[in-house]
Every structure is written in structure tokens, then in C-alpha cells.
């Protein structure tokens, strides 16, 4: 059973957070192991498996990015495994330039600016996805998802770079 079906939701990119929560809470009320404390072992095992599957489904669908990746995989879009080299030359150039800028950024403000650009880009790319899914344009979906994955990672890197810079400034301040 796919994650959408498990939660009784239509397999769509557009998902109301409140509808997702409602479906998830209702099913967890039914299956959470706390409801099976005094039940026979086989029922408890079944509840545990169901609750775990619900948690997996909820976690996957809650985040818009992970939901988009999951839906793409259901639609048969082949993605390179996480951590593999970027195979899109345009994106490769963009990524290298951005990482260099991040590496050279010497203040928290500069890092913040880069991160905020990345976040804007991410939102834009996410907003463009539904029409691609509608057109079932697998190549374009793949290209956009790859870029989204990169932007997400970049935001993470910016966050750690920021923490490091802030730390350095802190220590200098104290010295």
C-alpha cells in the first residue's frame, strides 16, 4: 500500500496539512500500541507494525519536498540515489558557484543573504512542480527535483556555516 492510500488521501502533490494531520491522528487512535497494552501479543505486534507504517507515511508526506520525491517515484520518475554526483550540467555549474560563494562568505549577514536566496529559489521551484506533474513531464520533474534536492542541501550547509561563523565571532568577542 502506498503512503497516500494508507492515510486514505488522494495521491496528489497538493495536500492540506490539516487534512493530513486529521487522517494521521484518526488512524493512530486506532493503531497506536498504547491502545493495545492489554491485548494478546499477535495483536500488539500488528498494531506496532501498522503504527510504524503510519508514522513512515506521515513523515514522508508531511514535508512538501519529500512528498514531491515520493510522488515522483510513484509516477515512475527515476532519480539518482541521494549523495550521487549531480548529472545535470547546468545545475552542476550553479551548485559549484553557489558553494564557492558560501565558502568565501565571511560574515553571518552574507551567509544569511545566500540562504535566503536559496530559500526563495526553493519556493519558486516547488511552486512550479504541480504543473509539471499535471503535464506528466517526467524529464522536467526530474530536473526540478534534482535542483530542489540541491537547494535543500545548500540551505543546510548555509546553516552549519552560519553556526560556525557565529561561533567564531562569539569566541573573538570573548577573547
Amino acid at each position: 500500500m502506498d503512503h497516500f492510500a494508507r492515510l486514505g488521501l488522494p495521491a496528489a502533490l497538493d495536500l492540506e496539512p490539516a487534512a493530513l494531520d486529521k487522517a494521521y491522528f484518526t488512524l493512530q487512535r486506532q493503531w497506536h500500541p498504547d491502545r493495545f497494552v492489554a491485548k494478546p501479543p499477535e495483536q500488539r505486534a500488528k498494531a506496532s507494525t501498522e503504527a510504524a507504517a503510519l508514522n513512515d507515511a506521515y513523515r514522508t508526506l508531511k514535508d512538501p519536498l519529500s512528498r514531491a520525491f515520493y510522488l515522483a517515484s510513484l509516477k515512475g520518475v527515476e532519480m539518482p540515489a541521494d549523495g550521487k554526483t549531480i548529472d545535470d550540467p547546468d545545475l552542476l555549474v550553479e551548485a559549484m558557484d553557489a558553494r564557492e560563494e558560501l565558502h568565501e562568505a565571511s560574515s553571518v549577514a552574507e551567509v544569511d543573504a545566500l540562504a535566503s536566496f536559496a530559500r526563495e529559489d526553493l519556493q519558486k521551484a516547488l511552486a512550479g512542480l504541480p504543473s509539471l506533474f499535471l503535464a506528466n513531464d517526467k524529464a522536467a520533474i526530474r530536473k526540478t527535483l534534482l535542483r530542489l534536492r540541491y537547494l535543500d542541501k545548500f540551505a543546510e550547509e548555509a546553516r552549519s556555516r552560519r553556526a560556525n561563523l557565529a561561533n567564531l565571532t562569539d569566541k573573538r568577542g570573548k577573547a
Binding site: S48, T49, A52, N55, D56, R59
Partner: peptide, 8 residues
């Protein structure tokens, strides 16, 4: 911060 029970 992954909800439990979970199996991954």
C-alpha cells in the same frame, strides 16, 4: 525527532 514507533 522521528515519530515512534517506527521501522525504517
Amino acid at each position: 525527532n522521528t515519530p515512534i514507533p517506527v521501522q525504517l
